[in-house]
Amino acid sequence: MLNDPLAEVRVILTAEGGSCARARQVVREAAASWGLSEDLVDDAQLVVTELVSNGIDHGEGPITLVVSRKAGGMLVEVHDESPAQPQLRPVDPSSPRGRGMQLVQALSVKWGTKPQNSGKVVWAQLEA
């Protein structure tokens, strides 16, 4: 299934810390089956950690992770049931938090959000 270049991997995650590790594993396995570079895998794992963490901290309900193969890379989508949009904030050097979306922006070719009937999708496209 994962060898199919058009394959999509979809996983439901609970809103708890262990879900970030599961999300990284899903991204790694999908990228490996698609023959994507190790550098892309590393960036995608960091991006998915930030997106899932935001879903846990600021979202509602279960989180759905969708990873899709795209020409030159992959698309990572995180769905949650909160309509609140992520905020790209200036970095506060005195705060240990608040850099997640800055990292997503820096590592992605592009990223964005899509409102849905029940919440939103935050997505990031990564390329080698």
Rank of each mutant, 00 (worst) to 15 (best):
L2N: 06
L6F: 15
V9I: 10
R10G: 09
I12H: 10
T14D: 08
T14S: 12
T14R: 13
A15N: 01
E16I: 03
G18L: 06
A21M: 02
R22S: 08
R22G: 01
A23R: 10
R24Q: 11
R24H: 02
V26M: 02
V26H: 00
R28T: 12
E29R: 12
E29M: 09
E29P: 08
A32R: 11
A32L: 13
A32P: 07
L36A: 07
L36G: 06
L36Y: 01
S37H: 04
V41T: 15
V41Y: 04
A44D: 02
A44H: 01
T49K: 07
L51F: 08
V52N: 05
S53C: 15
N54G: 13
G55N: 02
D57E: 10
G59C: 03
G59A: 03
G59Q: 05
G59T: 01
E60M: 03
G61K: 06
G61I: 02
I63M: 08
T64A: 12
L65K: 01
V66L: 14
V66E: 10
V67E: 04
A71R: 13
G72A: 05
M74E: 00
V76R: 01
V76Q: 03
E77F: 00
E81M: 05
S82G: 12
P86D: 00
P86E: 02
Q87G: 06
R89I: 11
V91E: 06
D92N: 14
P93K: 11
G100M: 13
A106L: 15
A106W: 11
L107D: 09
V109N: 07
K110C: 13
W111K: 07
W111R: 04
G112D: 07
K114N: 14
P115F: 04
Q116H: 02
Q116W: 05
K120F: 05
V121Y: 06
V122R: 04
W123L: 04
Q125F: 09
L126D: 05
L126W: 07
E127Q: 13
E127S: 12
